[in-house]
């Protein structure tokens, strides 16, 4: 995807390190069960997502729409159907209790946190850079890294093939059918040629790569070189401060009392 945007300091962080830090943060977030703490941490991550990805505010807002959807739907299920003692409201199957309400918000904020972390990463990292960095810093085997990069390159071709099949079906008048039988037919008519074509192409690419002496040795030369810089330290420091400050703030100035 080619989108124009300013390159902020988030782009200069080593991609492997960025992925690792965000992964650790996600796993930490799985174990945060305190709502105040969770809100503080989420705010800190949203700040990075909103201000430092270098994308226009319009695009950021557009990307946030599915977010809010997930936030609402994840928390609502828990708020309506969760267990709890202190009853606030009951109507048919729905029973809202204080405990379920708080837990619903917690789950919603956790979903929000995960989404913000993920989008911050994918907005500020080019896949090619990530795989080069993974080969250099994490010692990922080149065959996996190059396969990924090749596969990502094949996505536009798959889209094009999809369009071709669709046009062909339109010309032959298969698009108009309705009902279960026609859906079944359509799924088959699209998926089988797309899959078999992709497999054949992937196999051909692999044969070509091996014919050109692609080897799986790690002491190869790289077109892009990645190392560590002061931005990496700043990035780690930001999250350490966020986790500590968020914890103290949640004790000193709780937003909601539980």
């Amino acid at each position: 995807m080619t989108v124009t945007n300013a390159e902020t300091w988030l782009y200069k962080i080593n991609p492997s390190l960025k992925l690792f830090v965000l992964m650790v943060l996600c796993i930490v977030a799985l174990f945060i069960d305190d709502l105040n703490y969770m809100i503080n941490v989420t705010m800190g991550v949203l700040l990075i997502f909103l201000c430092f990805t270098g994308h226009s505010i319009k695009r950021i807002i557009l990307l946030s729409i599915p977010f809010s959807f997930i936030f609402i739907s994840t928390s609502l299920a828990m708020i309506f159907f969760g267990k709890g003692e202190t009853l606030w409201f009951e109507w048919g199957l729905i029973s809202i209790t204080e405990e379920s309400f708080m837990r619903g918000l917690l789950v919603g904020f956790r979903a929000l946190l995960f989404a913000a972390l993920g989008l911050t990463f994918s907005l500020t990292t080019r896949p090619v850079n990530l795989f080069y960095s993974l080969m250099q810093q994490v010692k990922l085997k080149p065959k996996y890294a190059y396969s990924f990069m090749a596969a990502l390159r094949l996505i536009p071709i798959m889209m094009q093939e999809f369009q071709t099949i669709r046009n062909a079906m339109k010309v032959r008048g298969f698009e108009r059918g309705t009902g279960v039988k026609s859906i079944y037919f359509k799924i088959k008519a699209y998926s089988i040629p797309l899959l078999s074509g992709s497999i054949r192409r992937a196999h051909r690419i692999a044969v070509a790569m091996e014919a050109k002496r692609f080897t799986d040795t790690r002491d190869r030369t790289y077109y892009y070189d990645f190392g560590f810089s002061k931005y990496d330290q700043g990035f780690i420091l930001y999250f350490i401060i966020l986790l500590l400050a968020g914890f103290f703030l949640s004790i000193q100035f709780p937003l909601v009392s539980i």
């Binding site: 996996y144 090749a150 996505i155 992709s198 196999h203 091996e210």
Partner: peptide
Amino acid sequence: LKLSDVLVTIVIAVAFGIIYILWGSIYY
């Protein structure tokens, strides 16, 4: 796994990755 196996697997997987993304909207 040989290079060919890895490449074929990942290409199949990425194709399903696109379906996974589209599936998200049905899920909503």
